[in-house]
């Protein structure tokens, strides 16, 4: 159990080691395709771990989270194609607009509970899709946006480097996102949202404002989600309303739950495993979602704490074993 706020030395060390390992990985992983997989892992990891903040820690059943990703994507797409804005600025705009949208959704749900939050946030997502489809002159509607400009790094050709440039951009986003989320979670705000989740009335009686904490949490969960969406647009160079669909939502939600809610790192781990595993069984075709679904159910039944919980339990067991062996 911890003593309040701040990120501990062990975690900082772990973060640095992890970042270094991932930064050196392209030396070993040279194939374009595998680098592409890792980039997808990074993107999904950012989105899933951000969702863990609002869904896992704060207990807000935000079913509009993928809409925030889509808003980041379309902001980037429209800003670069329609307004001719520089890709880097458009990237930032994706994050900002997603955060503003999240703040907007949170207003009607500030005092709502449980399923009503699901309904309102889901409706919000649908609203955004309809908005995009209805403005098809600008947004490409159901056909989507194509030929979206991508990043330009002077002196480096992003198209001919076996995805090395995109890999590092995605990695930097992932590192920033993880540090940001962990700082939030280990701050007084992070404690306050857990306190609100534990007992809302008691938290209020101790001076914690439900509305304010929810607003900050929703906006916090949106910033890097929007940036990831914008990056997605720069990477694939097209945008479609598919990202608002049920299949991507299900995939990302599975990552959050499978990884273990209220952990941040759990989502990252699950993003890695699910993406890799999904590729490994690609040959199974239509069986793939079924296999993945069954697997998730089995893991959740065995370890309600998700993968992170399972690993933590194993680590505890090993430590106990080590102690018992040390003192006969």
């Amino acid at each position: 159990m911890s003593m309040g706020v701040g990120i501990g030395r062990r975690e900082i060390t772990g973060m640095v080691v992890g970042a270094v390992v991932l930064a050196l990985l392209p030396m070993v992983v040279q194939d374009s395709y595998y680098r592409h997989l890792l980039i997808m892992v990074f993107i999904y990891g950012i989105v899933a771990s951000s969702w863990d903040l609002s869904l896992g820690y704060a207990g807000i059943f935000n079913f509009g989270h993928m809409a925030l990703f889509g808003i980041g994507l379309y902001t980037y797409g429209l800003a670069t194609t329609l307004l001719g804005i520089s890709p880097w600025i458009a990237l930032l705009a994706g994050g900002v607009l997603a955060a503003l949208a999240a703040a907007l959704i949170s207003l009607p749900i500030l005092r709502l509970k449980g399923i009503y939050v699901v309904l309102v946030t889901f409706a919000f997502g649908q609203l955004v899709v309809q908005l995009i489809i209805s403005q098809s002159d600008y947004t490409g509607g159901n056909q989507g946006l194509v030929r979206i400009p991508s990043f330009h790094i002077p002196g480096h050709n992003l198209m001919r480097d076996h995805k090395l440039g995109f890999y590092y951009i995605a990695l930097i986003l992932l590192c920033c996102s993880t540090v940001f989320l962990r700082l939030m979670v280990r701050s007084r705000l992070g404690l306050a949202i857990r306190a609100l989740r534990d007992n809302e009335e008691y938290a209020t009686s101790r001076g914690i404002s439900i509305s304010r904490q929810r607003l900050i949490t929703m906006a916090g969960s949106a910033v890097f989600t929007g940036l990831a969406g914008a990056f997605y647009g720069a990477y694939f160079r097209n945008a479609s309303t598919d990202v608002f669909g049920a299949s991507l939502t299900t995939l990302l939600l599975s990552m959050v739950l499978l990884g273990g809610i209220s952990t941040i790192y759990g989502s990252l781990l699950a993003a890695l495993l699910l993406t890799i595993f999904s590729e490994m069984i690609a040959g199974l075709g239509a069986w793939r979602p079924i296999v993945i679904g069954v697997l998730i159910i089995l893991v959740m039944l065995a370890y309600p704490g998700g993968l992170y919980g399972a690993i933590a339990a194993a680590a505890r067991a090993l430590r106990r074993l080590g102690r018992r062996q040390a003192s006969p």
Partner: peptide, 26 residues
């Protein structure tokens, strides 16, 4: 400030963190 009939606490937080909530938002 008030206390409640049933002994209430933030169960997923530690003893220190519970009191920290009172201090931080009091």
């Amino acid at each position: 400030a008030r206390t409640f009939q049933r002994e209430t606490a933030f169960d997923t937080l530690s003893v220190f963190e519970n009191a920290l909530m009172g201090a931080s938002y009091g």
